[in-house]
Nucleic acid binder design. Sequence first.
DNA 1: CGCCAGGTTAGAG
DNA 2: CTCTAACATGGC
Length: 290
Amino acid sequence: MEISLPPEFSFKECLHFLERSPRELLHKVEGDAVYKLVNYESEKILFKVSSSDSRLIVDFPIAVPNDEIKQKIERYIIEWFDIDKDLKPFYEMATKDPFLSHLAQQHYGYRIVGMPDLYESLVWAVIGQQINLSFAYTLKQQFVREYGKKLVFKDKEYFLFPEPGIVAYLSMEDLLKIQFSRQKARYTIGISKAFLDGTISKEKLKGLSLIDAKEKLMKIKGIGNWTANYALMKTFRHPDAFPLEDAALSNALRVFLQLDRKPTLNEIREVFVRYKDWEAYATLYLWRSL
DNA sequence: CGCCAGGTTAGAG
DNA sequence: CTCTAACATGGC
């Protein structure tokens, strides 16, 4: 299977992002390709994505699925790498921007590698709240290894993110055992229950405006402004969603603004005025500077 | 040992 | 709307 790519796309830059933690279990980067397991109609399907010329090559190492599932996987990959987005206007803006021009040129074609699964996006965000990324990956690794489904192929393990139906019924103890704090455990179980009883779902939020979707998300305990924006950026791909309170974003801007302290939220807002409608991508490239 | 980390909540001003 | 304490633990 092949997926054609726009000129403003770099698979290499996206792979760099996918490789950022050795503790990642939800995909495996090997050489110039990434392997990922997905679940369709309770059937696990392993696929491999690599790149050649201006297209992505998708292979199925275990078994080639039927056309219907192939089509779903194609859509999944397009969503995952934000392939449909036209980045020309962003680069036009970035070229003229003092903070972004160099980054945009250096990492030309880098895209927001998203999370098509809203549940994963929210739980991962909660896991990452207020702790360093390295420890966040440790928590996620333990969580996925313990409660996610697994497939073994040629002595290698491939995991799916745990499902709400499993996590909703875990006890606080189960999660404390894998080093979640009480707060993270409560939030994670609460979010899982909200998915299970239909309080939230990707379908329900799809099509809502940024404001409306954010409002619905933030009604759930543990989802604040940062988490809601993160999910809207990574799962719904709102171009103007970005995590204002993000510690890493703050660090990146501190350098560009040449401050000897963290920038205030208002200083960050001020900078982002000029990134209007491209806040998500501006954030991506600022993160890349770290 | 100390500071900080891809925050959220509840409460106060 | 903005500011703050409490939460909790590992990374460096």
